[in-house]
């Protein structure tokens, strides 16, 4: 974009490069940190996340009396290092976020575009399916699904895709409705393009800012859903460190060792918040219509 910004004709409004909005910077930084933790967990984590040491159980975080050097955020009821488990937990959280959200996005957006653009019969079918899906409470739906198809990372991802594609479908369909009414679509038809070409080349790029914002938000949602499923013990095995699993364990010993619950909760909260803010920030920054 840089070269256009500088050579843009003077007649239009000013096009100097705007500074990146603060929320984009903050949320992007946090997400980058989480990503680095996930990818390089073995090098970053100070301890083996599975190593138990009953002599070191329920150590408090470093600033409290009774802490041990090297166990910065303390240990849990089995003497496992909380920080290391959070760092490893980022792996599962991000895997679920990327895979599940992307798949839900592709499926939902494609159906939303088609339904919103061609209307009629296709739209009828898609809309009815969406209506039916909407009548299930999503978290209960996820728990039921995983209970039926079995626990494990694959099931969690599949459950999120099956449930959350409608989120994309509804929003993209509505956005497509709006776009189709704009004159540029008529211009393209007058210029002789087929309806399919217009959908792909003219309408779809205009829905991208919305799709990207929603994708980021959905990644946050996927992180929460994974945490919830881990919390109720329906995700991967309890030994493997997941944020939801840690929160569940921490809950039982909250009065003796609050840090086991609080730190993964903070990690979860910040990550979900960052995904949402990052998406909104991207939309504001790169939607040409808003510029």
């Amino acid at each position: 974009m840089a070269d256009i910004a500088q050579t843009a004709p003077q007649s239009g409004p000013a096009h100097r490069r705007r500074p990146l909005p603060l929320r984009l910077v903050l949320s992007g930084t946090w997400l980058l940190v989480v990503l680095i933790c996930a990818v390089f967990a073995p090098f970053i984590a100070p301890h083996d996340p599975l190593a138990q040491d009953l002599l070191l159980e329920r150590l408090p975080p470093f600033w409290m009396a009774g802490s041990e050097p090297g166990y910065y955020l303390g240990t849990d009821g089995l003497g496992r290092d909380v920080l290391s488990r959070i760092i490893y937990g980022a792996r599962i959280a991000l895997t679920v976020a990327f895979v599940a959200a992307t798949a839900a996005c592709v499926i939902g957006s494609a159906l939303g575009l088609i339904a919103g653009y061609y209307r009629g019969f296709v739209d009828q079918i898609v809309s009815r399916i969406v209506d039916i899906w909407m009548s299930f409470p999503p978290v209960l739906f996820a728990i039921l699904l995983v209970a039926v198809i079995g626990t494990g990372l694959h099931s969690v991802i599949l459950a999120i895709i099956v449930i959350d594609w409608i989120r994309f479908c509804r929003v993209v369909r509505a956005e497509t409705f709006v776009q189709v009414k704009l004159d540029y679509v008529d211009s393209a038809r007058v210029a002789g393009f087929s309806r399919l070409t217009i959908l792909i080349r003219e309408v779809f790029p205009n829905t991208l800012p919305t799709i990207v914002a929603l994708l980021s938000l959905e990644m946050g949602i996927a992180v929460i859903v994974e945490a919830i499923l881990s919390f109720v013990n329906l995700s991967i095995s309890t030994d493997d460190p997941t944020w939801g699993g840690m929160i569940a364990e921490g809950r039982t010993i909250i009065y003796f060792a609050w840090w086991v619950l609080v730190f993964p909760l903070i990690a979860l909260f910040l990550t979900v918040l960052a995904f949402g803010q990052f998406g909104e920030g991207l939309k504001d920054r790169f939607d040409p219509v808003l510029q």
Binding site: R189, V190, G192, F193, N206, V289
Partner: peptide, 27 residues
């Protein structure tokens, strides 16, 4: 409808009412 749109595109053109929305913002 396919033949029609080619015929129209080759023979006629439209100058629309609202130049704000008649151009695709992302192209």
């Amino acid at each position: 409808s396919n033949a029609r749109r080619r015929e129209i595109a080759a023979a006629a053109a439209l100058i629309p009412q609202d130049p704000l929305t008649a151009l695709n913002p992302v192209r």
